[in-house]
Design a protein around this nucleic acid. Structure first.
Lengths: 176, 176
DNA sequence: TTAGGTGCAAATTGTTTGCAGAGAT
DNA sequence: ATCTCTGCAAACAATTTGCACCTAA
């Protein structure tokens, strides 16, 4: 099902409107920088946004193989360069957890921000927000006479209910 | 000056007692695992703990060249493997900031923990602690039925007083 | 004496780039 | 027609490992 963004008719944060916003950012970036619309970029964007709905934090390898299912012959370098483009366009965020792979997720809109809790047993990546933690980070920087440019907060934790974790493991391994 | 750790006679957190604790951890690890005391490991430990006093967060390359000043001919692989050994022994913490280099700092003792604020202008690395942030992280994990194994919080910020930052830059570049 | 350590060089891993042909506008 | 993009392969950068020789215990 294509994105039929209808801003105002759907609650904020809904995947459909959010993906629509990201598509608009992409289109604007392409237009404003004299770049070209290509079939590869369309497929990569579609594939990337689809994985995003399940909050998958795909690696380049994972994304590449998903892209190749839709369009054979696409090269690693194209996906690599396109994801950089998406980052520049404000469509994607780049994440580096501890598995040595660069991963991507759909960008947060506006002032939204979230951090990650990674299960050390199965690798599943949860997301969470805490405004008070953000405030305290600002305060810590300010006390040093600095202003925050960006931050990263990653929590590595193990699941207290393994049977639930097993389920996550299966889900996650699908894309590995 | 060698470390003359005198636990109980100096305040907790003092560099001298702390380094003494770390040396003891190293010695215990070597003993308990049937490993051997070598001149290289001694020199690397001395050099590493010395950089730690200034909270330098050395990279392998930086550490290697400092080690070679004290003992010519030491190879990269030896420093590499020795730092892994120190991590296993609880002597060092491994850190990966965004400059693509693995850095090391003396391990925190017991329950101590600190996070980092990295200046995006000069690369200088500050440290800070915030117990409330830690509590909230625990709470976030608990709400998902998880228990924290470790975490990383890095704040990238720019300095509001550049002239101060210049000073830091000089200090930091010394080891680059 | 012997198991473990060292130093070199080569292998790995993940990322980045140069370039000739293909494609979008 | 022109300028960008793609796919391949090669270059890079940082880390990791195999191996023959060395050394602590």
């Amino acid at each position: 099902m294509p994105d039929m963004g209808v801003p105002g008719y759907l609650p904020m944060g809904c995947a459909m409107t959010k993906n629509q916003s990201l598509r608009e950012r992409y289109a604007a970036h392409i237009r404003d920088n004299g770049m070209k619309q290509t079939r590869q970029r369309e497929v990569i964007l579609d594939t990337f946004l689809a994985t995003g709905r399940e909050r998958e934090h795909v690696s380049l390898d994972e994304l590449l193989s998903q892209v190749q299912e839709r369009m054979a012959g696409v090269g690693y370098a194209t996906v690599y360069r396109t994801m950089k483009l998406f980052v520049d366009a404000g469509v994607a965020h780049e994440r580096r957890f501890r598995d040595g792979q660069t991963r991507y997720e759909p960008a947060d809109l506006d002032d939204e921000h979230h951090d990650h809790i990674i299960c050390v047993d199965c690798g599943f990546i949860h997301e969470f927000e805490d405004a008070e933690i953000e405030r305290r980070q600002d305060a810590a920087a300010e006390s040093l006479g600095m202003r925050i440019v960006s931050h990263r907060l990653e929590i590595y934790a193990s699941c207290l209910s393994p049977e639930k974790c097993e389920h996550w493991e299966q889900r996650h391994k699908r894309n590995g």
